[in-house]
Lab assay of single mutants.
Amino acid sequence: VTLFVASYDYEARTEDDLSFHKGEKFQILNSSEGDWWEARSLTTGETGYIPSNYVAPV
């Protein structure tokens, strides 16, 4: 399981994006799509795309 933590807050801009807060942890589901990764929030359980430059490895 690949875990990352949010370095910043992010507000979703499309329905496919995932909003999150600094400190929130994610399981990365797919990182092969470039700068936007499909992730599941371990806080909310929601799945969506997050900007990879807003998160760091745990």
Score class of each variant (00 low, 15 high):
residue 56 A to I: 14
residue 16 D to W: 15
residue 32 S to E: 10
residue 35 D to P: 10
residue 14 T to M: 11
residue 37 W to Y: 08
residue 37 W to C: 03
residue 27 Q to L: 14
residue 18 L to S: 00
residue 20 F to G: 00
residue 31 S to D: 13
residue 16 D to Y: 15
residue 16 D to R: 15
residue 24 E to R: 00
residue 50 I to R: 00
residue 33 E to Y: 12
residue 37 W to T: 02
residue 18 L to T: 02
residue 29 L to W: 05
residue 35 D to C: 13
residue 12 A to P: 04
residue 23 G to W: 04
residue 46 E to D: 09
residue 32 S to T: 12
residue 7 S to G: 09
residue 21 H to C: 14
residue 16 D to L: 14
residue 45 G to W: 06
residue 11 E to R: 07
residue 43 T to C: 13
residue 2 T to P: 13
residue 40 R to Q: 08
residue 33 E to I: 11
residue 52 S to K: 14
residue 57 P to Y: 05
residue 1 V to S: 13
residue 27 Q to I: 15
residue 2 T to I: 13
residue 50 I to P: 01
residue 14 T to W: 13
residue 5 V to M: 09
residue 34 G to E: 12
residue 4 F to A: 10
residue 12 A to L: 01
residue 51 P to F: 06
residue 31 S to N: 13
residue 31 S to G: 09
residue 13 R to P: 07
residue 40 R to M: 12
residue 2 T to D: 13
residue 9 D to G: 05
residue 12 A to G: 11
residue 1 V to K: 13
residue 2 T to G: 12
residue 4 F to D: 04
residue 56 A to N: 10
residue 31 S to F: 15
residue 42 L to K: 03
residue 14 T to L: 09
residue 37 W to E: 01
residue 46 E to M: 14
residue 5 V to P: 03
residue 33 E to G: 14
residue 40 R to K: 11
residue 11 E to D: 09
residue 13 R to K: 12
residue 5 V to K: 05
residue 23 G to P: 00
residue 16 D to V: 13
residue 22 K to T: 07
residue 29 L to P: 04
residue 8 Y to C: 15
residue 6 A to P: 04
residue 52 S to L: 05
residue 40 R to L: 11
residue 19 S to I: 01
residue 57 P to D: 05
residue 5 V to A: 07
residue 37 W to H: 03
residue 27 Q to R: 07
residue 36 W to C: 08
residue 12 A to Q: 06
residue 29 L to F: 06
residue 28 I to L: 06
residue 17 D to R: 15
residue 12 A to T: 05
residue 58 V to Q: 08
residue 27 Q to T: 09
residue 37 W to F: 08
residue 54 Y to C: 13
residue 58 V to D: 10
residue 39 A to I: 03
residue 25 K to Q: 12
residue 32 S to I: 10
residue 28 I to E: 02
residue 32 S to L: 11
residue 47 T to R: 10
residue 41 S to Q: 04
residue 29 L to Y: 06
residue 44 T to S: 09
residue 12 A to E: 02
residue 13 R to M: 12
residue 27 Q to S: 07
residue 50 I to S: 01
residue 41 S to L: 07
residue 35 D to T: 10
residue 50 I to D: 01
residue 5 V to R: 05
residue 35 D to I: 10
residue 1 V to H: 13
residue 23 G to K: 02
residue 16 D to N: 15
residue 26 F to A: 00
residue 14 T to V: 06
residue 16 D to G: 15
residue 21 H to E: 08
residue 53 N to G: 12
residue 16 D to C: 15
residue 1 V to R: 11
residue 9 D to K: 03
residue 11 E to H: 09
residue 39 A to P: 01
residue 7 S to I: 15
residue 54 Y to A: 14
residue 47 T to I: 14
residue 27 Q to C: 13
residue 33 E to N: 15
residue 42 L to R: 03
residue 41 S to Y: 02
residue 41 S to M: 05
residue 58 V to E: 10
residue 53 N to P: 06
residue 52 S to Y: 07
residue 37 W to K: 02
residue 48 G to N: 01
residue 37 W to V: 05
residue 9 D to N: 07
residue 33 E to P: 10
residue 33 E to F: 12
residue 18 L to C: 03
residue 35 D to Q: 11
residue 27 Q to P: 02
residue 51 P to M: 06
residue 35 D to V: 10
residue 25 K to S: 07
residue 43 T to H: 10
residue 25 K to M: 15
residue 9 D to S: 08
residue 37 W to R: 01
residue 12 A to I: 02
residue 39 A to F: 02
residue 25 K to N: 07
residue 34 G to T: 12
residue 48 G to T: 01
residue 28 I to A: 02
residue 46 E to H: 11
residue 1 V to E: 14
residue 12 A to M: 04
residue 18 L to Q: 01
residue 24 E to M: 05
residue 25 K to E: 09
residue 50 I to V: 09
residue 5 V to N: 02
residue 49 Y to P: 01
residue 20 F to Q: 00
residue 30 N to T: 08
residue 57 P to R: 07
residue 13 R to S: 10
residue 29 L to I: 11
residue 24 E to F: 03
residue 24 E to V: 04
residue 21 H to L: 12
residue 15 E to K: 13
residue 13 R to F: 08
residue 42 L to C: 15
residue 28 I to M: 03
residue 58 V to K: 04
residue 37 W to G: 01
residue 13 R to Q: 14
residue 9 D to C: 11
residue 22 K to L: 05
residue 10 Y to R: 02
residue 15 E to I: 11
residue 41 S to V: 05
residue 14 T to P: 02
residue 8 Y to P: 00
residue 19 S to Y: 02
residue 32 S to Y: 09
residue 18 L to I: 10
residue 33 E to Q: 14
residue 4 F to K: 04
residue 44 T to N: 05
residue 32 S to N: 11
residue 47 T to H: 07
residue 8 Y to F: 12
residue 29 L to H: 04
residue 4 F to T: 04
residue 25 K to A: 08
residue 6 A to K: 00
residue 37 W to L: 08
residue 11 E to I: 13
residue 28 I to F: 03
residue 23 G to R: 00
residue 49 Y to D: 02
residue 30 N to H: 08
residue 58 V to C: 12
residue 44 T to H: 04
residue 31 S to K: 13
residue 29 L to C: 08
residue 36 W to R: 14
residue 11 E to S: 09
residue 28 I to Y: 02
residue 42 L to G: 02
residue 31 S to A: 13
residue 51 P to G: 03
residue 49 Y to W: 15
residue 20 F to N: 00
residue 49 Y to T: 07
residue 54 Y to T: 06
residue 52 S to E: 03
residue 9 D to V: 00
residue 51 P to R: 06
residue 40 R to H: 06
residue 40 R to A: 05
residue 16 D to K: 15
residue 41 S to E: 02
residue 5 V to W: 06
residue 28 I to H: 00
residue 51 P to V: 02
residue 20 F to M: 09
residue 43 T to E: 14
residue 14 T to A: 11
residue 52 S to N: 06
residue 47 T to F: 07
residue 42 L to W: 05
residue 46 E to S: 09
residue 29 L to G: 03
residue 47 T to S: 09
residue 48 G to I: 03
residue 14 T to Q: 10
residue 28 I to T: 01
residue 38 E to W: 15
residue 5 V to T: 07
residue 5 V to E: 13
residue 54 Y to E: 03
residue 44 T to G: 03
residue 2 T to V: 13
residue 31 S to P: 09
residue 53 N to D: 10
residue 15 E to H: 11
residue 55 V to G: 03
residue 15 E to L: 11
residue 24 E to L: 01
residue 13 R to D: 08
residue 46 E to N: 11
residue 24 E to N: 05
residue 53 N to A: 14
residue 4 F to V: 12
residue 26 F to H: 00
residue 43 T to D: 10
residue 13 R to Y: 08
residue 48 G to Q: 00
residue 14 T to Y: 15
residue 5 V to L: 06
residue 14 T to H: 14
residue 56 A to C: 14
residue 11 E to L: 10
residue 49 Y to I: 09
residue 19 S to H: 08
residue 33 E to L: 13
residue 8 Y to R: 11
residue 57 P to E: 08
residue 3 L to R: 05
residue 49 Y to A: 04
residue 6 A to I: 03
residue 47 T to P: 01
residue 13 R to L: 11
residue 57 P to V: 08
residue 31 S to Q: 13
residue 19 S to P: 05
residue 18 L to N: 00
residue 10 Y to T: 01
residue 42 L to E: 07
residue 36 W to S: 06
residue 21 H to Y: 10
residue 58 V to G: 05
residue 28 I to W: 01
residue 21 H to W: 07
residue 7 S to K: 15
residue 11 E to C: 14
residue 14 T to K: 13
residue 29 L to A: 05
residue 56 A to F: 13
residue 38 E to V: 15
residue 40 R to E: 05
residue 21 H to Q: 12
residue 35 D to M: 11
residue 10 Y to E: 01
residue 2 T to N: 12
residue 7 S to R: 13
residue 28 I to G: 01
residue 54 Y to N: 05
residue 15 E to Q: 12
residue 16 D to P: 04
residue 39 A to V: 13
residue 39 A to K: 00
residue 25 K to F: 15
residue 1 V to M: 13
residue 43 T to P: 02
residue 53 N to R: 12
residue 27 Q to W: 13
residue 49 Y to N: 08
residue 4 F to W: 15
residue 2 T to S: 10
residue 2 T to A: 10
residue 31 S to T: 12
residue 11 E to G: 05
residue 13 R to W: 08
residue 37 W to I: 06
residue 51 P to D: 06
residue 56 A to E: 14
residue 47 T to A: 07
residue 44 T to Q: 02
residue 31 S to L: 10
residue 57 P to Q: 08
residue 45 G to C: 10
residue 46 E to G: 07
residue 50 I to N: 01
residue 47 T to Y: 08
residue 13 R to C: 15
residue 48 G to C: 04
residue 8 Y to D: 11
residue 38 E to A: 08
residue 20 F to W: 01
residue 51 P to H: 08
residue 49 Y to V: 07
residue 47 T to W: 08
residue 23 G to F: 05
residue 50 I to W: 01
residue 26 F to C: 04
residue 19 S to A: 06
residue 20 F to S: 00
residue 26 F to R: 00
residue 34 G to W: 09
residue 4 F to M: 10
residue 54 Y to R: 08
residue 40 R to W: 06
residue 34 G to A: 14
residue 23 G to H: 04
residue 55 V to Y: 03
residue 46 E to W: 08
residue 1 V to Q: 13
residue 11 E to K: 10
residue 45 G to S: 05
residue 16 D to E: 12
residue 31 S to C: 15
residue 39 A to H: 00
residue 51 P to A: 03
residue 46 E to A: 12
residue 29 L to R: 04
residue 54 Y to I: 07
residue 38 E to K: 12
residue 35 D to S: 09
residue 18 L to K: 01
residue 4 F to N: 04
residue 24 E to I: 02
